[in-house]
Design a protein around this nucleic acid. Sequence first.
DNA 1: TTGAAAGCGCTAACAG
DNA 2: CTGTTAGCGCTTTCAA
Lengths: 334, 334
Amino acid sequence: MSITLADIAEKAGVSVAAVSKALSDQSDIAPATRRRIKQLAGEMGYVMNVAARTLTMKKTMAIGVVLPLAHIPAVTDRLRGIQAEAMERRYLTSVAFHNGGIDEERKQIEMLYGRVDGFVITPANQSLELAKLLKRLDLPVVCMSEPLVKMETDFSGDDDEEGGRLAAAHLLERGRERIAYLGYAEGTPSDQAILKGMREVFAGKGLSLDKSWIRWGNASQAETRANMDALLAMTPRPDAIMAFSDVTALWVLEHLERRKVAVPGEVAVAGYDDTIFAELGRMPLTSVAQPNFEIGRQAARLLLERLEDESGAAAAPCRRVVFKPRLAVRMSSG
Amino acid sequence: MSITLADIAEKAGVSVAAVSKALSDQSDIAPATRRRIKQLAGEMGYVMNVAARTLTMKKTMAIGVVLPLAHIPAVTDRLRGIQAEAMERRYLTSVAFHNGGIDEERKQIEMLYGRVDGFVITPANQSLELAKLLKRLDLPVVCMSEPLVKMETDFSGDDDEEGGRLAAAHLLERGRERIAYLGYAEGTPSDQAILKGMREVFAGKGLSLDKSWIRWGNASQAETRANMDALLAMTPRPDAIMAFSDVTALWVLEHLERRKVAVPGEVAVAGYDDTIFAELGRMPLTSVAQPNFEIGRQAARLLLERLEDESGAAAAPCRRVVFKPRLAVRMSSG
DNA sequence: TTGAAAGCGCTAACAG
DNA sequence: CTGTTAGCGCTTTCAA
């Protein structure tokens, strides 16, 4: 069995209350007693019982992180940021990945409930169900990288419109006017934001994005292959591909090589995230870079500040922290 | 405030004990009462208080996973396997990543203590300190992919010696006899196992591995670059590079391109893990493939079986589940 | 300063 | 079958 406060109290010849006070550095205890108790606790190898503390304090000192797309390096970078911040404030980060489906997403959130004081999520589903669930649980939520349209929450992410603008401006400048977009899902706010940014730049030049060049569902290589073949079969063909993630862009590079389409000669390619793999694909990939670690760190900070704000935690208005992306230009776009 | 058993008891006009029994499907309760209580609990939106249950049951119903190298896709694949198995048995998976240093590794384990019933770890440090810590915590531990030499535990991973044999045999067959090895750290058992397998195959042909072609510390691109330049400066040069991970192998391909060394013409390259990026690098990469999802799943299974084994949990001997790797041959080795 | 006592929400004997 | 009681280990009044 583990050491408890009672064990220490007995050995020290004081009450349990005294030990509790001493170990949690309360003021109403004699410095000498505190020192003695702390010393003893250390010797006895005391470790606080988390469940008991949680039960009395109604605070778990942990934050829950629920994320899709575990295989995307940008996601793990953001996670490291969250963990770094949480650890600094002595909070545990409890992570759960899911496959992007609403059922798994919901299930993970439910499993975490009662073990965490709040959530950082990158919602993969814009369903009402998810928003309802989170409202019912009534814990602080921070959205990271992707807002939840059905619910107002704190937000940390990058400015995807600006990302779209940067990419579009760059490609236009390189003489590409027929840009296709490979996105994740039509209902995804960040996809829409990127498109909005791109459209803005196009409009500025009196151009527009062709609807039929927007293709969804690029979370698997097979889908991306199919999308690319469809695009290549069109006349005129797109002369540039913008992908919502680096992984998708790498699939595009691989597929174009297979189809013997010259990059960037015939088709320029750009991705999003600028992860370590952007430099390692068939050729160096142009990519929109986000400060992923910082995005995660900030997400955790927003959550923790809300948790530690004793006063009107619930009342405080939602905050949005938006980071500016930049463009890493490499060979794939000439 | 949340709904408690007492709230339900009051509304149903029964005792708290009755509600507890009904909701946990105990037998000593009238079926009708149970149904009524369950119905009511559902309507009232009851959710069990995890801390209270943990305190009474001395069981958290969660497993802790502590891993280094979050950016390696093989790691996240294994993690998905763990989660899948845990979720099936209604256990929460609480993940913590660390940077590979002993301090962070220890800290993460300590933070998880009290919130989990056991650990799945891939030890990044073979220090005595880590073994001592785990022994002191006295919770079941399963090592995944990497054993802990200072401590006997359950193990799930692949047969790295066989991986080394497969790679060496393949490269020899392609006429390469000067194979360099880029490993993670000299004290890492899986590195040593791979080398052992390679040496075996070499010895079979009356050949041996040159010590000076074994280079450690390839967790960053800079280190790998330095190692490669050192190798390329040697006479004779190695004619093949075996890397402990795909990411390292991708750095090698990129570096060789930069140095205008033909692959596989002058130097063949092979990696380890066969992740999705193996096909997407400068050229398709030959790689030793492990069933990562299964390795994770099995690791969780070992842990959960130990946790659920009411009888001599502590007594049961340690088990090792070893998966056979296979070789995915691609262009980088001709 | 210190300690006694109440209680967080739940389960597990043990009576009725 | 159902209810009463006694904790699990901790924090927090409130007295002493």
